[in-house]
Design a protein around this nucleic acid. Structure first.
Length: 474
DNA sequence: TCTGGGGTCCTAGGACCC
DNA sequence: TCTGGGGTCCTAGGACCC
């Protein structure tokens, strides 16, 4: 499993231990009893608001962005009767249901409630996979429960629903159960709200057959349209298609997975503790912004928030990405990968600013985002603990062979090595660490600077000049 | 009354190395 | 000398999910 490789192994400079390559799976073994539960809290954000404000109970409540460009996160069932849906613009929701209560989100409260609910699932089984604040898979087999009948699972599910109600202050959940994640997930949606559906083992393919292809998670509007063009609208029709044909239509990965899911051949394991792959912050503006200095200042603040979240999670990352969305909703990203991971807001901010400068902003942008990916769960502690006070002879720099400067980007932090060749730097906690290399000393001394150390700036300038002169004469 | 914010995964092309 | 094929990394974009 890729997920088992871990952040450390996935990081540059730490090649993963040899992984056992998996043979192509022909036979998909699906468990023999419906021991996977999918639990989905009903209209979660709206239900929390109704719980905390009794005056809202029984009334239409819409939670989400309440500004000019807001969208609905969750509508209470009372509001859904007026056609209000998730992802709908708040403006449209207001026109459909003017008398609803429109509330901004209170994520801290939702997080707290979610944790109380997840704790009830963990009390039932050690193997719980949260998908979001309001959804999770629970693996009953991991709790030592085997040979479960439909009645057994139904009783377990009802008990869990009751436990969730008590732990959350009255929230209802819908539960689906089946022999796979796919079936459990689809089943939980069939009897909302406050329902429970257990799909007996062995009936999965016929259970799916009459449904629209869009019930399969991963089949969105684009895939549905492609399939529609070749006359496939139901899962039954999908089941008739060869894998080759599916792959032709929707690509290798999607096609082969769809081919299996159509017949409920889904052996995906329930996985707790999934690793974070990226952390980002973005904001849609009330009106489009065009002023570069204002955008740069906003970018700085976003970089700061991303860094705070990285630090809190004890993560650092190598790739900084800036996202811009134009007035016509076209979206662009610019990214840059550093030689070493960082959680330093100043480093992220500088890279983000440079990427923003490379972005076209002339028509005004409605959204700006800053993110960090290629995450590692370590911050090159080895670099920070090495000798701190080795004297550095800057005069040696011009003698450096050209190829050692590969990957240096002016304006970015110090020198920037690609794939570990050349200079190495790391940054974090307000410091930048440089490993000096010369023609005669391939692994030279290491020195750590404060980010605002003037000598670091001088060093940066020297290298930049050298870089541009070598480039100019090359 | 157009279209949030946080993510994940996949694809495709180019650079680079062997 | 010419041709070339993998593999990995990086970048950009898109589909999808809650």
């Amino acid at each position: 499993m890729v997920a088992a490789a871990g952040n450390r192994a996935a990081s540059a400079g730490n090649p993963p231990a040899a992984e056992v390559s998996e043979a192509p799976v022909r036979l998909v073994v699906v468990r023999a009893d419906p021991s996977i539960l999918h639990v989905d809290l009903d209209a979660f954000f709206a239900a929390v608001e109704q719980r905390d404000k009794p005056s809202l109970r029984g009334k239409p409540v819409v939670v989400g962005g309440i500004g000019l460009r807001g969208v609905v996160s969750t509508a209470s069932y009372e509001a859904r009767r007026y056609g209000v849906r998730s992802a709908m613009s708040t403006a449209e929701a207001r026109s459909r249901c003017p008398h609803a209560a429109y509330l901004g989100t209170r994520f801290e409260v939702y997080r707290e409630t979610s944790q109380a609910v997840m704790a009830q699932m963990r009390a039932l089984s050690p193997l719980v996979e949260p998908l979001s604040l309001d959804e999770a898979f629970v693996d009953l087999a991991a709790a030592g429960l085997h040979d479960l009948t439909v009645e057994d699972v139904h009783a377990i599910g009802m008990d869990l629903k009751e436990a969730i109600r008590e732990a959350s202050g009255g929230l209802t959940a819908s539960v689906g159960a089946g022999t796979s994640k796919l079936i459990a997930k689809i089943a939980s949606d069939l009897d909302k709200p406050d329902g429970i559906v257990v799909v007996p083992a062995g009936t999965e393919a016929e259970f799916l057959a009459p449904m629209q292809v869009t019930v399969i998670p991963g089949v969105g509007p684009a895939t549905a349209q492609r399939l529609g063009l070749i006359g496939v609208r139901t899962v039954a029709e999908l089941q008739q298609l060869s894998e080759e044909e599916l792959v032709r239509q929707v690509g290798v990965a999607h096609g082969s997975s769809l081919h299996r899911l159509a017949v409920a051949a889904d052996a995906r394991a329930v996985v707790s503790d999934r690793e974070t792959k990226s952390i980002s912050v973005e904001d849609t503006f009330e009106t489009d912004l065009i002023d570069r200095s204002l955008l740069a200042a906003i970018s700085d603040r976003m970089a700061h928030r991303v860094a705070e979240r990285l630090q809190k999670a004890q993560l650092s990352g190598r790739t900084v990405t800036v996202k811009t969305r134009m007035h016509d909703f076209t979206t662009h990203t610019r990214s840059s990968t550093l030689a070493g991971p960082t959680d330093d807001s100043r480093v992220i901010a500088r890279v983000a600013r440079r990427l923003l400068e490379d972005s076209d902003v002339s028509g005004g942008i409605r959204l700006l985002g800053v993110g960090v990916s290629s995450l590692a769960d370590w911050i090159q502690d080895d670099l920070f603990t090495e000798s701190e006070d080795v004297p550095i002879d800057l005069a040696v720099l011009p003698e450096r062979p050209r190829e050692r400067l590969t990957g240096y980007y002016p304006g970015q932090d110090v020198v920037h090595a690609q794939h570990g060749a050349g200079w190495v730097w790391g940054s974090g906690r307000g410091r930048v660490t440089v490993r000096f290399e010369t023609a005669t000393t391939p692994a030279g001394p290491v020195r750590t600077f404060a980010v605002d150390d003037p000598e670091l700036t001088r060093l940066e300038r020297v290298v930049a000049e050298e870089d541009s002169s070598s480039t100019g004469t090359a």
